[in-house]
Design a protein around this nucleic acid. Structure first.
Lengths: 105, 105
DNA sequence: ATAACATATTAGTGTATTCTAATATGATTA
DNA sequence: TAATCATATTAGAATACACTAATATGTTAT
């Protein structure tokens, strides 16, 4: 695997390294939502939601379609959500192990 | 899903958002290696390898065992590698799509 | 055309990351 | 116990990120 590919891979993962974007991806996991929807479903400013969507779109993680006044965003590839869930599971297992070790001393 | 969980999830993903760490994880995918091994398999300084390993260990992504002079590192959870591969696949598909669109104009 | 709504962009500040160089700690061998 | 090998830690400079505030652009309805 080439250095360039690791860089692209890292750039893609950088998108997941922000809690706000993870929250947005989690909202978008089942259906598309407009920017307005996403603003009201989170406690973020409109500018901030727009910026995060723009970052995710630039990396090909979400796609958008305009319908009248609204622009709807959706996840580009279901593998994104699979990876999201796998990492969440790994996290849960890590936390459980840490709790277990702490309990045992 | 709580805000705190998204933060932890993001912190875990932050580990994957650096090309050097991805390269190291890819080296560690099948078996454990010592710090010295990792230094010679990459073109990184010993200090830098050690720092990256320390970051990954703190997030529970790798585990370590000392054997004499050497400290061996391994991946803590196979789901990490599954997620790694899924994201790589999503990246490949995104790049293909972009090439396709560019070719078609 | 203008007003109102929806979304995107820009500038700027505070904070976090990454690397190198130097040094410290830990373990083994002579 | 020195000397040596292996690994970890620290400080500091350069760079990248995330947010707010202000403003611009795009779309529909009056």
């Amino acid at each position: 695997m080439s250095k360039r590919l690791f860089e692209l891979h890292a750039e893609m993962c950088k998108v997941f390294s922000n809690p706000v974007r993870l929250e947005m991806l989690n909202i978008l996991r089942d259906k598309q939502w407009s920017v307005t929807d996403l603003v009201s479903k989170t406690d973020l400013s409109q500018a901030n939601v727009s910026q995060h969507l723009s970052i995710m779109k630039a990396k090909g993680i979400v796609l958008s379609t305009r319908k009248g006044k609204h622009v709807y965003y959706r996840i580009a590839n279901p593998k994104i959500i699979k990876a999201f869930d796998l990492i969440k599971e790994a996290l849960a297992e890590t936390l459980n192990k840490q709790r277990y070790c702490k309990a045992r001393g």
